[in-house]
Amino acid sequence: MSLTTMLATMLPGVGRTCLLFFLTAVLSLILGIFVMFLRQSRIKPVAAVTKIYISVMRGTPLMLQLLVWYFGPFYLFGWSIRGYRFTAILLGFVFNYAAYFAEIYRSGMGSVPVGQNEAAQVLGYSKGQAFIKIILPQVVKRILPAVTNEVITLVKDTSLAFALAYQDVFSLAKQISASQTSFMPFLIAGIFYYIMNYAVAFAMDRCEKALSYYTI
């Protein structure tokens, strides 16, 4: 198999890895906000359940969680859902990463001095205005480095989707390598992940620089 053919065969995998990455990143960054608020809910049982959810997500292997999402409905309820594979993968990734992001958001919120909220309140800002205009921008600045780390880990973690036979770059590399007895596909996959993370790091660095005009 020529290098060009190899690359062409792996290209759809690149698309699938990127798709899984972007969907997971966007959805889990958003879901994480809700999880953070539930975690801090004044309704004790809600906070407690959310805490358990976060601890399970962080305390068990993501690959195991993927298998549970995929096989759980069948083993637990006898449901077999057609075309469920990608949904299961996405659910597994999004719920796992949302737990991590929620904890990052929580520590970010906790690190903004209460005086900021108090100053806003005395000036007459509504709670919503104070959060959006004053607290959130400072939280974003504080959590950016931690979020960058998680997103970079996510790029690499997408390869775990091979456990549910998702045909991403990693799965294809393994298959082609086996059938062609070639080391090349692994090299290509490695270079791809590296470039993707380089792009992520570059973009996040731009964001950090854009927010570096002030210190807290």
């Binding site: 900021q116 000036l123 004053i134 807290i216």
Partner: peptide, 12 residues
């Protein structure tokens, strides 16, 4: 209005 001991200006 209230002026705080530690100012509490909005840093951003």
């Amino acid at each position: 209005g209230l002026v705080f001991q530690n100012f509490n200006l909005f840093p951003h």
